[in-house]
Design a protein around this nucleic acid. Structure first.
Ligand SMILES: [Mn+2]
Ligand SMILES: [Mn+2]
Ligand SMILES: [Zn+2]
Ligand SMILES: [Zn+2]
Lengths: 138, 138
DNA sequence: ATTGAAAATGAAAATGATTTTCAATATCAG
DNA sequence: CTGATATTGAAAATCATTTTCATTTTCAAT
């Protein structure tokens, strides 16, 4: 049984390899949808029934710290998590089914520069997120 | 005593004019920072000490329904509210002091079209938010 | 001005999500 | 193997928000 890369990264950071962690990691890594802690809990218990909800919270926190997952903000709430895209990417979310796709190539440089100039702010970060309907939902 | 325009709008929608509501409305309308319900509560009690936190929640809900305020999403949490900008605008937030400025003129048309084409999604909405340091905080 | 129906209020209780505590268990370096 | 220590899940605690409800306030109709 070869470990999932996320498990190896956690291990290198000093985390031990446990079944509970493995169940949460695999649930998150497999999902193309944003999942809430409870959804992760329910899904992960299919392969590891003894799992506690507390461990889900703790593992999600560790994965977020490692930059492997990220919190997803949505109108209905901001408690969901999804695999973090590599590099500078943003999310496109289906409002119907929650399916998420990440994209890159946003060019906000000139907009940001002009706003920085006009407002006197030093702009250090930006959030961009698109919402819509995925091919199968529309 | 002339009523605040927001109070008039609420009144036209059938809401009654009360002191508790007035205190919350004026607190929100005056603030250039995003405020959490508790912050609104503390601020508004300066002018209306009998105010209950429940009424803050209820009034914020009404103001959001009327499109007069909007929820602000931030890394530290998404429970804060701020005056909604008129028309299609986005927010620039100071990470230090929470001061908010709204701006327009983002041109995401071509980006959105190209992503829609590439992914097959129908894109209906977007969130854009900038973070940084305001002139006095940097 | 008075009245009364309906809306609004705030205190307290209920709920729901997340965090903390803690005793028992599992991992893993030595 | 062994033992130090990280991890676990149950239960309790905390914290934000919502619901309930008896009382008060608003305001339209007299
Ligand atoms: Mn970007
Ligand atoms: Mn825009
Ligand atoms: Zn969909
Ligand atoms: Zn500032």
């Amino acid at each position: 049984m070869t470990e999932h890369p996320w498990m190896n990264q956690l291990n290198e950071q000093g985390y031990r390899l446990t079944g509970a962690r493995r169940a949460v990691v695999e649930t998150m890594a497999e999902s193309t949808h944003a999942l809430t802690p409870i959804e992760v809990y329910d899904k992960a218990r299919e392969s590891y029934p003894a799992l506690g909800l507390v461990t889900v919270y703790r593992t999600l926190e560790a994965l977020e710290e490692q930059g492997l997952i990220q919190r997803v903000h949505r109108p209905e709430g901001c408690q969901a998590f999804i695999t973090a895209p590599a590099g500078h990417q943003h999310l496109l979310l289906c409002k119907q089914c929650g399916q998420a796709i990440s994209f890159e190539g946003d060019d906000l440089e000139s907009l940001i520069n002009s706003i920085a100039r006009r407002t006197g702010y030093q702009v250090t970060e930006h959030w961009l997120q698109l919402f819509g309907l995925c091919p199968s939902c529309k």
